[in-house]
Amino acid sequence: MKKYAKQIVEKDNVATCVADINAGDEVYVKIDGQERAYKANAVIPFGHKIAVKAIKTGEFLYKYGEAIGKATQDIAIGDWVHTHNVVDHYEVV
């Protein structure tokens, strides 16, 4: 059975896995009627994110088309994206 990740909009550079992913698995993403495949570089649990574009240190993560965090290291396509390589840039005024 194909394993899917959910990318919300085209601008997003991460997609959320809706299956438990093993390193080396093909992860499929449907966006705007197209299906693309990405090879996972690590174990990615259900509900966690996979990079679908390369993200450099200091660049924003996009989900829902919005910046949701900043990369603390270079992230390659297929990488697991979570608190180990992302920082929250939110501050209450």
Binding site: I8, T16, C17, P45, F46, G47, H48, K49, L61, K63, Y64, E66, A67, I68, G69, V81, H82, T83, V86, V87, D88, H89, Y90
Partner: peptide
Amino acid sequence: GGLTTLIEKAMGANA
């Protein structure tokens, strides 16, 4: 569960 930042959680609610 996979949520990385508070902003990410908020955007999911704002959706």
